[in-house]
Design a protein around this nucleic acid. Structure first.
Lengths: 178, 178
DNA sequence: CCCTGATGGTCTGCTTCGGACCGTGCAACA
DNA sequence: TGTTGCACGGTCCGAAGCAGACCATCAGGG
């Protein structure tokens, strides 16, 4: 009864989504991810097809197949699945996020911050706006946790916006030669 | 120069580090990463051994081997390596960072924010302190880009600190004793 | 001279990534 | 009324990244 396949973050994402959805196909999961979780934890859609297979084998999910044209797979949590999800949720973690921004990496190695800012600012601004709208739309009719994640996401996005904006302020000459 | 291996972020990290270092062994790179870049873009040390091999094959690095006991490999940028690095640095990118904080993921799926905050706060606080010290120590004697990345890293870390602190403020009761 | 621990390096198995590619059915339109 | 195109739903694969066990060299002290 111990670890058959080990459970990774991806596993818990699938479990978590299925708990909320009740029963769903990978395609459903894919769409849900696209409008929610994907904002801060993206994954290739192929994993949402592969992972449930692994989880079924481990007894965490039950599977039901459609007979008709597209043999859709419907997945649902088993008791065991619910249990491991509950345990995971109750287990605090000290792991922290990394920044991993490609533009930042370039700056670290000496790229021109202004040039990066010019590319980053528009997308960054768009993200902020998007998140703000999203927040307004979901406030009140969505679990508290999702709101919190959106808010912290927004806070970070604003921090980036701030950073990139500052890069563009025509400040003390970018001294070519000193 | 046939079958080029494609250049990934990891590749550019190695190239970038080598440009600064001149010549270095993977072990050198590993130590450099540990105290600088690793703060916001970590990688398993094994990659710092594997990647230079790939890069050498592609003609981006030259390799010199020690004769003695540990056949250390010393790497150095070739002209070609310098060139692709320069190109990469000059190329702005719109890609943005993801948040990917495991604690946040749990909260998204309904975990108790306070409980997570209790685990996150101490490490988070420690990071902030560490970064602040680091900033004081390197200010002035390090390339501008590295300072900038440290500063934005610090800003984000503070944002997290803020977030987790707020979670702990004894606010509208979620029942404490159950 | 052996033990221990730091230094320096290799290997392996699995997960994740990215994207190409494949059927099915519907809808536009010639 | 067929054909074409495209959105939907899904599969597959190779390459890159991750985690961590493990190995090999060397120095110093008992």
């Amino acid at each position: 009864m111990s670890s058959e396949p080990r459970l990774t973050p991806t596993s818990y994402i699938v479990l978590g989504l299925l708990e909320a959805a009740g029963e769903a196909t990978p395609y459903d999961l894919k769409r849900i991810v696209a409008i929610s979780l994907g904002n801060f934890w993206s994954l290739p859609h192929a994993q949402l097809y592969a992972e449930p297979v692994r989880l079924s084998k481990g007894g965490y999910l039950s599977e039901r197949r459609e007979e008709g044209g597209r043999h859709r797979r419907y997945y649902r949590l088993t008791e065991r699945g619910k249990e491991v999800l509950r345990e995971w949720l109750a287990q605090p973690t000290e792991q922290m996020a990394e920044l991993r921004n490609p533009a930042m990496l370039k700056i670290f190695f000496g790229a021109d911050p202004r040039q990066m800012a010019e590319a980053q600012l528009p997308v960054c601004q768009a993200k902020v706006t998007e998140f703000e709208e999203l927040e307004r739309n979901i406030e009140g009719n969505v679990p508290e946790g999702m709101l919190l994640t959106l808010r912290i996401g927004l806070a970070h996005q604003r921090e980036w916006l701030n950073f990139w904006s500052r890069m563009l302020i025509p400040g003390p000459e970018p001294s070519e030669g000193d």
